[in-house]
């Protein structure tokens, strides 16, 4: 699946992933390929994007996460 992490200033990350763990407003959510359409608010914490054995970590706070088809959009007010 395709992941994009977007901050107000720029697209912070764009790429394929096998699994994502993201901090939702009420706790961590895990997204695997084939996830149902999903929209949730982000809390504060680190998004982990795993592809093969590599993991990319990005700190986010506020915003939302959207799963639509095979793409995941993480739109955060602040990205650290």
């Amino acid at each position: 699946m395709q992941v994009t992490i977007i901050s107000p200033e720029r697209t912070e990350f764009e790429g394929a992933a096998d699994a994502i763990v993201a901090p939702a407003f009420d706790g961590l959510v895990g997204i695997l390929p084939g996830h149902a359409p999903f929209l949730t608010l982000l809390g504060q914490g680190r998004v982990r994007v795993r592809r093969g054995s590599e993991t990319v970590e990005v700190g986010v706070s506020r915003g939302f996460l959207q799963v639509a088809g095979d793409t995941v959009r993480i739109v955060a007010d602040r990205v650290m």
């Binding site: 939702a24 407003f25 009420d26 149902a36 359409p37 999903f38 929209l39 949730t40 608010l41 506020r62 915003g63 939302f64 639509a68 007010d77």
Partner: peptide, 21 residues
């Protein structure tokens, strides 16, 4: 299509948080 989405929390709460952004 949003009708088919799983929304967490409710649409109302999501709007409330995203509008200021």
């Amino acid at each position: 299509a949003i009708a088919n989405y799983i929304l967490q929390p409710s649409a109302h709460e999501i709007l409330e948080r995203l509008l200021p952004l």
